[in-house]
Design a binder for these strands. Structure first.
Lengths: 146, 146
DNA sequence: TACTCAATGCAACTGTATTGCATTTATCAA
DNA sequence: TTGATAAATGCAATACAGTTGCATTGAGTA
Protein backbone atom coordinates (compact mmCIF):
# COMPACT_ATOMS: atom_id res chain seq x y z
CA UNK A 1 0.00 0.00 0.00
CA UNK A 2 2.74 2.43 0.78
CA UNK A 3 6.21 1.26 -0.26
CA UNK A 4 7.56 4.76 0.23
CA UNK A 5 6.73 4.73 3.93
CA UNK A 6 9.54 4.13 6.38
CA UNK A 7 7.66 2.47 9.21
CA UNK A 8 10.36 3.15 11.76
CA UNK A 9 10.25 6.86 10.97
CA UNK A 10 6.47 6.77 10.94
CA UNK A 11 6.42 5.46 14.51
CA UNK A 12 9.04 7.94 15.65
CA UNK A 13 7.09 10.81 14.09
CA UNK A 14 4.25 10.19 16.54
CA UNK A 15 6.59 9.62 19.49
CA UNK A 16 6.16 5.85 19.63
CA UNK A 17 9.21 3.66 20.22
CA UNK A 18 9.68 1.58 17.05
CA UNK A 19 9.62 -1.73 18.94
CA UNK A 20 9.93 -4.97 17.04
CA UNK A 21 6.26 -5.97 17.43
CA UNK A 22 4.91 -2.54 16.56
CA UNK A 23 7.03 -2.57 13.43
CA UNK A 24 5.86 -6.04 12.48
CA UNK A 25 2.19 -5.11 12.91
CA UNK A 26 2.70 -1.95 10.88
CA UNK A 27 4.56 -3.85 8.15
CA UNK A 28 1.78 -6.40 7.78
CA UNK A 29 -0.74 -3.58 7.43
CA UNK A 30 1.45 -1.49 5.12
CA UNK A 31 2.50 -4.34 2.85
CA UNK A 32 -1.09 -5.00 1.87
CA UNK A 33 -3.00 -3.13 -0.80
CA UNK A 34 -6.24 -3.54 1.13
CA UNK A 35 -7.26 -3.32 4.79
CA UNK A 36 -7.02 -6.41 7.01
CA UNK A 37 -8.99 -7.57 10.02
CA UNK A 38 -7.33 -7.83 13.42
CA UNK A 39 -7.38 -11.61 13.19
CA UNK A 40 -5.88 -11.52 9.67
CA UNK A 41 -3.05 -9.50 11.13
CA UNK A 42 -2.66 -11.79 14.10
CA UNK A 43 -2.72 -14.89 11.90
CA UNK A 44 -0.07 -13.48 9.57
CA UNK A 45 2.24 -12.59 12.42
CA UNK A 46 1.65 -15.76 14.38
CA UNK A 47 2.57 -17.92 11.38
CA UNK A 48 6.12 -16.53 11.45
CA UNK A 49 6.80 -15.79 15.06
CA UNK A 50 4.51 -16.00 18.05
CA UNK A 51 2.68 -12.87 19.14
CA UNK A 52 -0.25 -12.61 21.50
CA UNK A 53 -3.70 -11.69 20.26
CA UNK A 54 -4.08 -9.08 22.99
CA UNK A 55 -0.77 -7.50 22.02
CA UNK A 56 -2.00 -7.15 18.45
CA UNK A 57 -5.17 -5.43 19.66
CA UNK A 58 -3.19 -3.15 21.95
CA UNK A 59 -0.77 -2.18 19.20
CA UNK A 60 -3.66 -1.58 16.79
CA UNK A 61 -5.38 0.68 19.34
CA UNK A 62 -2.17 2.61 19.76
CA UNK A 63 -1.59 3.03 16.01
CA UNK A 64 -5.20 4.07 15.42
CA UNK A 65 -4.99 6.49 18.32
CA UNK A 66 -1.88 8.07 16.81
CA UNK A 67 -3.62 8.17 13.41
CA UNK A 68 -0.91 6.09 11.68
CA UNK A 69 -3.51 3.43 11.03
CA UNK A 70 -7.17 3.78 10.05
CA UNK A 71 -9.87 1.59 11.53
CA UNK A 72 -12.51 0.90 8.89
CA UNK A 73 -15.85 -0.52 9.89
CA UNK A 74 -17.41 -3.35 7.88
CA UNK A 75 -20.89 -2.52 9.03
CA UNK A 76 -20.61 -5.79 10.98
CA UNK A 77 -18.68 -6.44 14.16
CA UNK A 78 -15.11 -6.84 12.96
CA UNK A 79 -13.07 -3.78 12.08
CA UNK A 80 -10.50 -3.62 9.30
CA UNK A 81 -7.18 -1.83 9.50
CA UNK A 82 -5.24 0.02 6.81
CA UNK A 83 -2.52 2.67 6.70
CA UNK A 84 -3.96 6.05 7.59
CA UNK A 85 -3.72 9.06 5.30
CA UNK A 86 -0.19 10.46 5.17
CA UNK A 87 2.10 12.40 2.87
CA UNK A 88 2.21 9.44 0.45
CA UNK A 89 -1.49 8.77 0.10
CA UNK A 90 -4.80 10.47 0.71
CA UNK A 91 -7.90 9.44 2.64
CA UNK A 92 -10.09 7.32 0.38
CA UNK A 93 -13.41 5.46 0.43
CA UNK A 94 -13.69 1.68 0.81
CA UNK A 95 -15.67 -1.05 -0.84
CA UNK A 96 -16.77 -4.01 1.26
CA UNK A 97 -17.98 -7.16 -0.46
CA UNK A 98 -20.74 -8.75 1.60
CA UNK A 99 -20.15 -12.05 -0.13
CA UNK A 100 -16.43 -12.76 0.27
CA UNK A 101 -15.69 -10.27 3.05
CA UNK A 102 -12.94 -8.56 1.09
CA UNK A 103 -12.41 -4.88 1.90
CA UNK A 104 -10.96 -2.82 -0.95
CA UNK A 105 -9.57 0.67 -1.18
CA UNK A 106 -11.14 2.92 -3.82
CA UNK A 107 -9.57 5.79 -5.66
CA UNK A 108 -9.74 8.98 -3.56
CA UNK A 109 -11.20 10.74 -6.59
CA UNK A 110 -13.90 8.12 -7.03
CA UNK A 111 -16.37 10.31 -5.22
CA UNK A 112 -16.43 13.90 -4.21
CA UNK A 113 -17.48 14.65 -0.66
CA UNK A 114 -18.18 18.28 0.05
CA UNK A 115 -16.93 18.74 3.58
CA UNK A 116 -15.20 22.07 4.02
CA UNK A 117 -18.32 24.26 4.03
CA UNK A 118 -20.21 21.82 6.16
CA UNK A 119 -17.47 21.65 8.77
CA UNK A 120 -17.54 25.42 9.17
CA UNK A 121 -21.12 25.50 10.40
CA UNK A 122 -21.26 22.20 12.29
CA UNK A 123 -21.64 22.93 16.04
CA UNK A 124 -19.61 19.89 17.21
CA UNK A 125 -16.11 18.74 16.38
CA UNK A 126 -15.58 16.41 13.42
CA UNK A 127 -12.59 14.09 13.75
CA UNK A 128 -13.19 11.56 11.04
CA UNK A 129 -15.33 10.84 8.03
CA UNK A 130 -16.04 7.21 7.25
CA UNK A 131 -17.38 6.38 3.84
CA UNK A 132 -18.01 2.79 2.82
CA UNK A 133 -19.77 1.23 -0.11
CA UNK A 134 -21.30 -2.19 0.51
CA UNK A 135 -22.13 -4.61 -2.24
CA UNK A 136 -20.86 -7.57 -4.24
CA UNK A 137 -17.43 -7.48 -5.86
CA UNK A 138 -16.95 -8.46 -9.49
CA UNK A 139 -15.43 -11.87 -8.61
CA UNK A 140 -18.38 -12.84 -6.48
CA UNK A 141 -20.77 -11.53 -9.13
CA UNK A 142 -19.11 -13.88 -11.65
CA UNK A 143 -19.61 -16.84 -9.33
CA UNK A 144 -23.22 -15.61 -8.98
CA UNK A 145 -23.00 -16.38 -5.27
CA UNK A 146 -25.17 -13.29 -4.92
CA UNK B 1 -38.57 10.67 12.40
CA UNK B 2 -41.36 9.85 10.00
CA UNK B 3 -44.82 10.68 11.30
CA UNK B 4 -46.22 10.31 7.81
CA UNK B 5 -45.26 6.65 7.65
CA UNK B 6 -47.93 4.06 8.18
CA UNK B 7 -45.91 1.23 9.66
CA UNK B 8 -48.51 -1.39 8.90
CA UNK B 9 -48.51 -0.41 5.24
CA UNK B 10 -44.72 -0.22 5.24
CA UNK B 11 -44.50 -3.85 6.38
CA UNK B 12 -47.14 -4.98 3.90
CA UNK B 13 -45.32 -3.20 1.08
CA UNK B 14 -42.37 -5.57 1.50
CA UNK B 15 -44.58 -8.63 1.97
CA UNK B 16 -44.06 -8.93 5.71
CA UNK B 17 -47.03 -9.75 7.90
CA UNK B 18 -47.59 -6.72 10.17
CA UNK B 19 -47.36 -8.77 13.37
CA UNK B 20 -47.69 -7.06 16.73
CA UNK B 21 -43.98 -7.34 17.64
CA UNK B 22 -42.73 -6.23 14.23
CA UNK B 23 -44.97 -3.21 14.47
CA UNK B 24 -43.76 -2.40 17.96
CA UNK B 25 -40.10 -2.60 16.92
CA UNK B 26 -40.76 -0.44 13.88
CA UNK B 27 -42.69 2.11 15.96
CA UNK B 28 -39.86 2.46 18.45
CA UNK B 29 -37.43 3.07 15.59
CA UNK B 30 -39.74 5.36 13.66
CA UNK B 31 -40.81 7.46 16.64
CA UNK B 32 -37.25 8.54 17.28
CA UNK B 33 -35.51 11.38 15.50
CA UNK B 34 -32.17 9.56 15.73
CA UNK B 35 -31.02 5.97 15.31
CA UNK B 36 -31.10 3.60 18.30
CA UNK B 37 -28.98 0.62 19.27
CA UNK B 38 -30.52 -2.85 19.43
CA UNK B 39 -30.40 -2.77 23.21
CA UNK B 40 -32.03 0.69 23.29
CA UNK B 41 -34.85 -0.80 21.26
CA UNK B 42 -35.07 -3.89 23.43
CA UNK B 43 -35.02 -1.83 26.63
CA UNK B 44 -37.80 0.46 25.38
CA UNK B 45 -40.01 -2.45 24.40
CA UNK B 46 -39.28 -4.50 27.47
CA UNK B 47 -40.25 -1.64 29.75
CA UNK B 48 -43.81 -1.77 28.42
CA UNK B 49 -44.39 -5.38 27.55
CA UNK B 50 -41.97 -8.28 27.60
CA UNK B 51 -40.19 -9.18 24.40
CA UNK B 52 -37.16 -11.39 23.98
CA UNK B 53 -33.79 -9.95 23.04
CA UNK B 54 -33.35 -12.55 20.29
CA UNK B 55 -36.73 -11.67 18.83
CA UNK B 56 -35.67 -8.04 18.61
CA UNK B 57 -32.49 -9.03 16.76
CA UNK B 58 -34.42 -11.29 14.41
CA UNK B 59 -36.98 -8.61 13.62
CA UNK B 60 -34.21 -6.06 13.07
CA UNK B 61 -32.44 -8.43 10.66
CA UNK B 62 -35.67 -8.89 8.79
CA UNK B 63 -36.41 -5.17 8.57
CA UNK B 64 -32.84 -4.37 7.48
CA UNK B 65 -32.99 -7.15 4.91
CA UNK B 66 -36.19 -5.69 3.48
CA UNK B 67 -34.61 -2.22 3.50
CA UNK B 68 -37.33 -0.71 5.72
CA UNK B 69 -34.69 -0.09 8.35
CA UNK B 70 -31.08 1.05 7.97
CA UNK B 71 -28.29 -0.44 10.03
CA UNK B 72 -25.74 2.26 10.78
CA UNK B 73 -22.33 1.31 12.05
CA UNK B 74 -20.76 3.22 14.93
CA UNK B 75 -17.28 2.17 13.95
CA UNK B 76 -17.39 0.07 17.12
CA UNK B 77 -19.22 -3.18 17.69
CA UNK B 78 -22.79 -2.06 18.27
CA UNK B 79 -24.94 -1.13 15.30
CA UNK B 80 -27.62 1.56 15.33
CA UNK B 81 -30.96 1.34 13.61
CA UNK B 82 -33.03 4.02 11.92
CA UNK B 83 -35.83 4.16 9.37
CA UNK B 84 -34.46 3.47 5.91
CA UNK B 85 -34.87 5.91 3.02
CA UNK B 86 -38.44 5.95 1.72
CA UNK B 87 -40.86 8.26 -0.06
CA UNK B 88 -41.01 10.52 3.00
CA UNK B 89 -37.31 11.00 3.61
CA UNK B 90 -34.00 10.59 1.81
CA UNK B 91 -30.82 8.76 2.68
CA UNK B 92 -28.65 10.97 4.86
CA UNK B 93 -25.28 10.96 6.62
CA UNK B 94 -24.88 10.39 10.36
CA UNK B 95 -22.87 11.97 13.11
CA UNK B 96 -21.61 9.77 15.92
CA UNK B 97 -20.35 11.37 19.13
CA UNK B 98 -17.48 9.32 20.52
CA UNK B 99 -18.03 10.86 23.93
CA UNK B 100 -21.71 10.31 24.72
CA UNK B 101 -22.45 7.62 22.11
CA UNK B 102 -25.30 9.59 20.58
CA UNK B 103 -25.91 8.94 16.88
CA UNK B 104 -27.53 11.83 15.01
CA UNK B 105 -29.02 12.18 11.58
CA UNK B 106 -27.62 14.97 9.43
CA UNK B 107 -29.35 16.91 6.70
CA UNK B 108 -29.21 14.99 3.40
CA UNK B 109 -27.94 18.15 1.75
CA UNK B 110 -25.17 18.59 4.31
CA UNK B 111 -22.73 16.95 1.98
CA UNK B 112 -22.77 16.10 -1.66
CA UNK B 113 -21.62 12.63 -2.62
CA UNK B 114 -21.03 12.15 -6.32
CA UNK B 115 -22.17 8.60 -6.90
CA UNK B 116 -23.98 8.29 -10.19
CA UNK B 117 -20.96 8.49 -12.49
CA UNK B 118 -18.91 6.29 -10.23
CA UNK B 119 -21.56 3.60 -10.10
CA UNK B 120 -21.62 3.38 -13.91
CA UNK B 121 -18.00 2.27 -14.17
CA UNK B 122 -17.68 0.24 -10.98
CA UNK B 123 -17.22 -3.46 -11.89
CA UNK B 124 -19.09 -4.85 -8.83
CA UNK B 125 -22.56 -4.19 -7.52
CA UNK B 126 -23.10 -1.36 -5.04
CA UNK B 127 -26.00 -1.88 -2.65
CA UNK B 128 -25.39 0.70 0.00
CA UNK B 129 -23.31 3.71 0.82
CA UNK B 130 -22.50 4.33 4.44
CA UNK B 131 -21.26 7.74 5.40
CA UNK B 132 -20.55 8.58 9.01
CA UNK B 133 -18.82 11.49 10.69
CA UNK B 134 -17.16 10.78 14.01
CA UNK B 135 -16.37 13.43 16.55
CA UNK B 136 -17.60 15.21 19.63
CA UNK B 137 -21.08 16.72 19.73
CA UNK B 138 -21.64 20.29 20.92
CA UNK B 139 -23.03 19.20 24.29
CA UNK B 140 -19.97 17.11 25.09
CA UNK B 141 -17.71 19.90 23.86
CA UNK B 142 -19.37 22.24 26.36
CA UNK B 143 -18.74 19.81 29.18
CA UNK B 144 -15.14 19.64 27.87
CA UNK B 145 -15.19 15.89 28.43
CA UNK B 146 -13.10 15.82 25.25
C1' DT C 1 22.74 -4.68 42.20
C1' DA C 2 18.22 -2.99 42.96
C1' DC C 3 14.58 -0.15 41.26
C1' DT C 4 11.31 1.47 37.85
C1' DC C 5 8.55 1.36 33.99
C1' DA C 6 7.00 0.00 29.46
C1' DA C 7 5.88 -4.02 26.75
C1' DT C 8 3.99 -8.38 26.64
C1' DG C 9 1.41 -12.62 27.77
C1' DC C 10 -2.30 -15.28 29.82
C1' DA C 11 -6.81 -16.09 31.71
C1' DA C 12 -10.99 -14.42 32.50
C1' DC C 13 -14.51 -11.39 31.25
C1' DT C 14 -17.82 -8.22 28.47
C1' DG C 15 -20.95 -6.84 25.04
C1' DT C 16 -23.15 -7.86 20.80
C1' DA C 17 -25.04 -11.01 18.15
C1' DT C 18 -26.24 -15.87 16.39
C1' DT C 19 -27.73 -20.79 16.56
C1' DG C 20 -30.36 -24.82 17.82
C1' DC C 21 -34.13 -26.46 19.50
C1' DA C 22 -38.49 -26.40 22.08
C1' DT C 23 -42.86 -24.03 22.58
C1' DT C 24 -46.56 -21.12 21.24
C1' DT C 25 -49.52 -19.01 17.91
C1' DA C 26 -51.68 -18.46 13.49
C1' DT C 27 -53.56 -20.43 9.23
C1' DC C 28 -56.07 -23.41 6.74
C1' DA C 29 -57.92 -27.80 4.80
C1' DA C 30 -60.88 -31.63 6.01
C1' DT D 1 -64.16 -28.02 15.35
C1' DT D 2 -60.20 -30.55 14.76
C1' DG D 3 -55.81 -31.77 13.22
C1' DA D 4 -51.86 -30.67 10.37
C1' DT D 5 -48.58 -27.42 9.08
C1' DA D 6 -45.90 -23.42 9.11
C1' DA D 7 -44.46 -19.09 11.17
C1' DA D 8 -43.17 -16.54 15.20
C1' DT D 9 -41.20 -16.50 19.54
C1' DG D 10 -38.50 -17.75 23.67
C1' DC D 11 -34.67 -19.78 26.17
C1' DA D 12 -30.13 -21.67 26.71
C1' DA D 13 -25.97 -22.17 24.84
C1' DT D 14 -22.55 -20.60 21.87
C1' DA D 15 -19.69 -17.57 18.86
C1' DC D 16 -17.05 -13.70 17.94
C1' DA D 17 -14.43 -9.43 18.59
C1' DG D 18 -12.48 -7.03 21.73
C1' DT D 19 -11.11 -5.59 26.78
C1' DT D 20 -9.42 -5.93 31.55
C1' DG D 21 -6.62 -7.32 35.45
C1' DC D 22 -2.75 -8.98 36.88
C1' DA D 23 1.70 -11.47 36.51
C1' DT D 24 6.09 -11.70 34.00
C1' DT D 25 9.87 -10.06 31.31
C1' DG D 26 13.32 -7.02 29.84
C1' DA D 27 15.58 -2.59 29.13
C1' DG D 28 17.28 1.47 31.16
C1' DT D 29 19.27 3.69 35.12
C1' DA D 30 20.18 5.36 40.02
Amino acid sequence: MCEQCNYKELLKSVHLEPTEKRLRVLEVIGNNTFPLSASDIHDTLDRNQSINRVTVYRILDLLVDKKIVDRISTGGRAAYYGLGPNEHHQAHPHFYCKSCGQMDCLNPGAMAVEMSNFKKTFPGRIDKLELRLDGICKNCLKKTIN
